[in-house]
Every structure is written in structure tokens, then in C-alpha cells.
Nucleic acid binder design. Sequence first.
DNA 1: GCCTAACCGAGACGGTACGTCACGTCTTTTA
DNA 2: TAAAAGACGTGACGTACCGTCTCGGTTAGGC
Lengths: 210, 210, 210, 210
Amino acid sequence: MRGDAGRKAGDAGDAETARRGRPRSEAVERSILEAVVKLFEEGVPLAELSIERIARTAGVGKATIYRRWKGKEELFVDVLADIEPPDPKLPGTSLRDDMIAFLEALRQRGLAKRSSLLLHNVHAQMLSYPKLWKAYHTTVIEPRRRMMLDVLRRAVDAGEIRADLDLELVNDLVVGPMLMRTVVRPDTPLPDDLAEQIVDAALRGVRPPG
Amino acid sequence: MRGDAGRKAGDAGDAETARRGRPRSEAVERSILEAVVKLFEEGVPLAELSIERIARTAGVGKATIYRRWKGKEELFVDVLADIEPPDPKLPGTSLRDDMIAFLEALRQRGLAKRSSLLLHNVHAQMLSYPKLWKAYHTTVIEPRRRMMLDVLRRAVDAGEIRADLDLELVNDLVVGPMLMRTVVRPDTPLPDDLAEQIVDAALRGVRPPG
Amino acid sequence: MRGDAGRKAGDAGDAETARRGRPRSEAVERSILEAVVKLFEEGVPLAELSIERIARTAGVGKATIYRRWKGKEELFVDVLADIEPPDPKLPGTSLRDDMIAFLEALRQRGLAKRSSLLLHNVHAQMLSYPKLWKAYHTTVIEPRRRMMLDVLRRAVDAGEIRADLDLELVNDLVVGPMLMRTVVRPDTPLPDDLAEQIVDAALRGVRPPG
Amino acid sequence: MRGDAGRKAGDAGDAETARRGRPRSEAVERSILEAVVKLFEEGVPLAELSIERIARTAGVGKATIYRRWKGKEELFVDVLADIEPPDPKLPGTSLRDDMIAFLEALRQRGLAKRSSLLLHNVHAQMLSYPKLWKAYHTTVIEPRRRMMLDVLRRAVDAGEIRADLDLELVNDLVVGPMLMRTVVRPDTPLPDDLAEQIVDAALRGVRPPG
DNA sequence: GCCTAACCGAGACGGTACGTCACGTCTTTTA
DNA sequence: TAAAAGACGTGACGTACCGTCTCGGTTAGGC
């Protein structure tokens, strides 16, 4: 899970392989991650976050960072895990309730400075740091997409959704508008009932009921 | 429209104020912009595109670049204008046709390497280069959003859309899913009839007709 | 003569090949050399004289130093030329007078902090910096040895020196004792008439005149 | 005699104060000294001999070195004692014989790679490592100088040397030329009869006998 | 025959310097 | 006056040692 630049794979947690030498300080590790988060929340874009500055902020030598991570990218992957809010809890009472709860969680995250910045930055560096983007995909985007698809599948079984629809499409129809607001147009305010509005429009469609 | 770092406002195009000294070479200007586009299409992310390298590629002195633009950001804004495909032509035959034409244009752009890379990069650097993001908003996002809103307004008048809906929401409901595919999940292939699928789902809704 | 890391050989001083770009500042060059001499006279040994510190002292970027010299060694070779006192002037009135003048110049240098430190340091780094040692040999030791050998040759012709002696040996016999005092035992004070004492002892020999 | 960084003075060899805990391994001590000598003879200059490398070569932890010596300098002082050849044995048959034997010992050492390197290096680092220089002075230079002065004093008593000469000067007159050859001009070959040549020239002087 | 202090290897730790590169500004010659 | 060339001070890059500091694990007395 960690970058662990200098570690042999599988060493960690191996009760039998007594680790030699002075063990790495967890306090130091925490202070590095916290330094990144701190600078991050002060608005320094990932691309301008130099290892040198992180080390200075954390009160740590550069080598101590490179001992743990091969570079910025791998460090950021671990920062990601630290920052990302937990999966939303869905009530399970109905398709509509679950969808709204899901979108509401997205909206909250869009409102939270930390997560919002993170999302933007990760997105931003997707080309420079493909591993970071992949990690974000794996640990954040995919699990939630699967969560949503589960909800949709159950809804199809319950007859709440037309059986002829591609569920991926349904997912995008609901999540896409929320991303338009939080990512593409982050400058416009998000109404309190945005999740409700989106879900209802997606469920009913925009055609008049004739 | 240009960055024109060193020019006094109003100088350009003033026929009476005979400009003194050697005039700026347009060929040089073009070769700079083309160098950026070239490097860009070779996959160099904006963040790693150094002025030094641009100058080298264009066969130009660094000062010549700084004379025209204050920095990378302003240069990129001009590159934007060079690259961006023209506004899509909408048939105007029906709401559904217009929407599909609009989304299809988005999809084409997502498939085009140049535009896709540009979108990703611009989006990516929105934090580092706020002016670039703003320019992208002003020259690309907003005009098309307005174009779409016009379509929707006419559709409301024609009774093709429920009158109680926020048109911004309707716009997001249609455009959002396309962005999910082109920006958030750029790795999955885009089906040929994606625009149609999205539009139909958005029009009818995902509920069973009962 | 200079290290000139980035220059093609023969470029310098070529009146026809007009050098392009901003020329290297002589003031900067001087301030670097002076910074080295300054730190040097403060007692910092060559081995501990970091490029970083030289740059800091000279108020200059590291790259500016590396642009001119490939490393510390080549820089020090140039410092050498700056510091080294000029060749001693020999009166030419007699063998004894010339020898005394020569040794007196050595003694003066041994008393001069700057030259003494330099000699010790150059000597000191002879193994780490072979080029420096070679340069010292070429520009300082050899010319003076040749100067002394000329004196001796003329003395042989004039019958002032036994014709059966190896002149190198005679040279060492005169210069060696002075080096013992200035280099090997730098802690003992040097009497004012040291040069005279040495020359007379070398001329007459230490045996009683029987 | 040892550096013994962590020991209280007077502890060593105190038969009554039984030292508690695991005693220091002599094998480790030897392997450290041998590692230094080995690297040394491979031509690594003292200045570039890092503690880290010595530890690696000796198969020893860095702390084990620092436990015994305060730093490189004190370690090298001990290495000195290991390496230095024993005092030359003088025949005592005549002034000339003793001088020649003394110089011949110097010449042999100049030819021996190990001692020659050591001399150069110790001399070299005299400024960076004053203690090392002092130790070299105390344990090597001074005893031999005293040995030589004893020889000279006896020679004065026996009427073999002019009584009006400063014996230090006579010493330098004989030793200086040998040092010129072994230290200042180490690149020129040393003739077999160099000691003889020097002594004879010093005894007789370079003036023609007339 | 334990107890315990000191040793041992390994290696983490905060630093400093290395030599390279790009930044954005500047100063030259040439056109 | 613009253009290319490239020098300039600045500061980050990733690596290597510095000397200090923990670790787990020996290795000897002293009880």
C-alpha cells in the first residue's frame, strides 16, 4: 500500500523476518504526509510542491522522503489514501434515496476544500503522474462506480429502472451532472437540493409527461 | 487577444503611429505557437513544457517569447485559440437532433488526440494557470453552454421539455454523461451511438414507463 | 590558460570569430577568484572549500562557476596563477648573491600567509587533485628550478662550482633546507639570515677546513 | 595511545576497575585499521576516505568506529603507528656512514608505496587534520630529527664538523635534498647512490677546493 | 546459571554539498 | 528596435556522506 522505495516486497508485516537496523519512524512518516496536506490546503498545486519544500515543512531530511517513496508521484498516492473521505453509506430504502445519498456525498466532497482541491489536482496531474491517476481510479472512482452499479442492478431487479438500459449509462446520467457542477463549473454555487433535482430529472426524463 | 507583454494598449493596428525599429516577425510568432502544438501532440504535458524547450524547438531566443507573452500561461491561452475546433453546426430540425449533434461534436473532440489532450491539460492546469482556465471557460465552455441553452429554451417554447425544469440542469444532464466518458473515464471506448443513447435516456428518463 | 569548461579551444581571443550572446562578465570571474582567496586566507582548507560556499561568498550562482571551470580543481589552478608571487629578480653579481636572492624570495613567500597557505594546500591536495599539482609544478616549481639551474650552469662555467657535481643535486642542496623550514617545520621561526646561512653552508660544506 | 572516544581517561588498563559488559573486540579494531590501510594502498586519498566506506570495507557498523575514535583524524593517527617503519639502525662507524644510513632509510621509505603514500597524505592533510600532523611530527619526524642531531653532536665533538655551524642547519642540509626528491619531485627516479651523493656534497661543499 | 551492561551490525535520522537543469531577466552582436 | 545567443542569480532535482541515534541480538563478567 505504501510506496516503500527501499523495501523488498512482502517484507512488511512478516512476523518471522526480523527487520534489521533502526526501524523507520512512523512519526516522521506522518509528519511528511501532514506537511503535504498542509501545503496542499494552503493552495500550493501538486506540480509546484517540491520535495525540498515538503522536507523543510515537515522538518525532515530529503533522504528520509526518498527512502520511503521513489518520487513525488508515489508520495502523493499515499497522501490520497490519507485524505479521501470514506465511502458514503447508502440507506437502501429505495433507488431514489440511494442515488440522492450518493450524489449528496459527492456534493459534500465538492464543498470540502481538501477533497475538492485533491480531486482537481489529481485530475490535473493525470498526465504527468499516470500512477497517481491510476491509483485515484482504483481506490476512489472504481469502488464508488461499482457501489452505484450495485444499487442500479438491484433497482432493475425491483423494476424501478427500465430493463433495456445500459447501467453504465444510467450511472453517468446521474453522476455526470454532479461532476459538471463540482469539476467543470466549480465557480457556481451548488444548491442544497442539487442531488434531489438531478435524481428526479434523471428518473423522469426531461420530456413532458405526454 | 494576444498576450503582448511589452506593447502599450492600443498600439496594435494603429495605422498612424508608425512603429519604430524592426517590426516583430509574424513568422517567428507562428513558429513559436507551432512548436508548442508540436511538443504538445508528442505528449509532453503542459506542466513539463519548459520555455527553454519551446524556444529550442522553435529555433528562437527565450527573450523573443517573453517579449510577446508574460509567461507560459498567456502563451498557452493563445495556443488554445489555434487548436480549438470550431463551434458545432446544429441542424435545428428538432431538440433531439440538435442535442445529438452537439454531443456528437463533443465525442469527436474526445476522440481527436489534439483536442482531447488539450482539454485534459487545460483542465489539469486549472489551478496552476487560472487565467488559462478562465480563457478556456470564456472561449470554449461558455459559448457552447449558451448555444445549448438556446436550443433548450426554444424546446421549452415548443413544449418539448417540461417547463418546470431548470435549463442548466437539463444541460448538465445531457453534457455531463459525455464528460464522464471523455474526461473521467477516458480509457473506455466510446460507442458510435453514445450521443443518441445519452439523449434518449435524458429525454425519457430511466424509470419504466408505467 | 583559463579552465573555460564550455569554450571550444582556440575561441578565446580570436578577433575574427565574433562571440555571440552575452559575454561572460569579467567582474563575476574576478569575484569568484577573490572569494576563493578570501575563504582561503580565512584558513578554510581547499578540501573543505565547497563550490556552494564559494558561490555564496562570491554572490554568484553555482552554474556560473561550473560554466567556467569543470570543478574545484580547475578553478584552483586559476586561483594559483592569481596568487603566486612573480619570479624573483636575481642580481647576477655572483653565484652567492643569486642563490641568496633566490632563497630569500622563498623565505618571504613562506612568511606570506597567502602563499604559504597556498603551497601547503596545493601540496596537500596533490593526490586528490593531480592536475592542480601538475599545474603548480609547471607554472611554479619548474620555472624556478630552471632559473636556478641556469645560475648554477653559469657558475660552473665561471669555475665557482666543482665541475664534477650533478647540478640538480646542487639545486636540492640549496633549496631543500629552505623547504625543510617552510614546509616540513613551518612552526619554527625563520631567522632573517637563513638564506645566507644555507648558501654559505652549501658552498663551503660542513667539514672543518682541514 | 588509542583514540578511545568514549572511554574515561585512566580507565584503560586499570586492573581493579573491572570493566562491565561485553568488552570491545580487538578483532574488530584490527579489521578497521586494516580496512583503512587497504583502501589507502588502493590509492584512495585520505580526504576521500569516508567513514562510511571504511565501515563497509571492514564489515563493521559506523557506530563501532565512532565508539573508538572521535573522527577520521584520530583514527588516522592510529593507522600511522601501524604503518610507520621502525627507526633506522645507524652503524655508528663514522659521521658519513651514519648520515648515509639515515638518508638511505628515508629513500627506502620514499620507494615504499605504503610509506610514501602515507607521508604524502599526512603532509597533505596537515591543515585539515592538525592533530594528525602533530602526531606525525611527534612520533615520526621529531624522533628522527633528534636521532640525527645526536649523530651530529657526536661528530662535532669528534671534530668531523665545523664547530661554528648550527646543527639544525646541518640536519636540514642533509635531509632537505632527500625530501626534495621524495616529496617535491616524486616523479623523478631516485638513483641508488643518492644518499651517498647528498652526504658527500654536504660534507665537502660545492665550491671547488681551491 | 541467570542478570545486565556494553558491544555489535544495521540502518534511520536531519543535514550539507554535489553537479545539472529550468526559471525569468539581462546584455551582447547582428540585421 | 527586434532577433539569437547565451550569461546571470535562484532554487529544485536525486545522490552520497556526515555524525548521531535507535533497533534486535550477542557476549562477557558478577551475583
